[in-house]
Amino acid sequence: MAENVQQNNDNKLKLTRHDMVSIFWRSGFEQASWNYERMQNLGFAYIMSPAIKRLYPEKDDRISAMKRHMEFFNTTPYMQSAITGVVLAMEEQRANGADIDDSAINGVKVGMMGPLAGVGDPIWWGTARPVIGAFSAGLAMSGSGLLGPIIFFLTWNILRLSFRWYTQMLGYKQGTNITQSLGGGLLQKLTEGASILGMFIMGVLVPRWTKMYFPIVISRVHTGGKTTVTTLQDIFDQLLPGLMPLVLTFICIWLLRKKVNAIWIIFGLFIVGILGYWAGIFGIAPK
């Protein structure tokens, strides 16, 4: 170690731009070896691989660095870039002789992965993908050809890639201060704004794209040779179009909060659909 420090004074070990790009590219494969034992651990080690190669030419240092990053790790994949950035800064300092031990590095990884997943899962999976997905699916179903899929692909990947690159570099620059700097307002604003947009769009979608049709005839009125038929659907529509989809959505929300598995609810709804059609309560909407 003493020799290393001596050597580093003349020739400081530093991650190159090429290393940063390589680590950014590898981040896109983080979950390849997702496993039930340590989840994204090997993924994190794989991402760190170019840095370990650059920073630890000595075999013993290299082995201990590899082992260090094989510990349990799991977060929202895109949030990992920020963590990697911070860890890169720490590893670089350590390689240049700073007194940073294994537990400090693992502490930062574990300390950041939880809170960042707490923010990342609702934003990326809970808001961004449903909103972009629903928007593009709407285009796809309205017969605009390849436009919907192309918009989905581009919007998602431009967002994702720029986010990954930006947070990796931010993490690297800010070193260990990143949690504070992200905590200061900006991230919170983004979360709040995205959630408002998400909830609003969900409200919009419920009556638009849920198809429920009740063909039961409530009354037949004959006036001067003309017959006016009123179905249950007409009555619902007079109250408020989309009322029954709203009720159904709330039933689903309630069931999910009762910890009923989503796939059972889906199966249950299929059975309700079949029985309801058989009994004449549900019909195929005329259009």
């Binding site: 849920t210 159904l248 659909g273 079949i274 549900f282």
Partner: peptide
């Protein structure tokens, strides 16, 4: 037919489960 049409009908409102999952996450 009763099964296929019934599935067809259910396919129209099965999306409510997806909405509910997303809403539960954000709400």
């Amino acid at each position: 037919d009763v099964i296929t049409n019934g599935l067809n009908v259910a396919g129209g409102f099965i999306v409510a489960v997806g909405y509910a999952m997303v809403i539960n996450m954000m709400a």
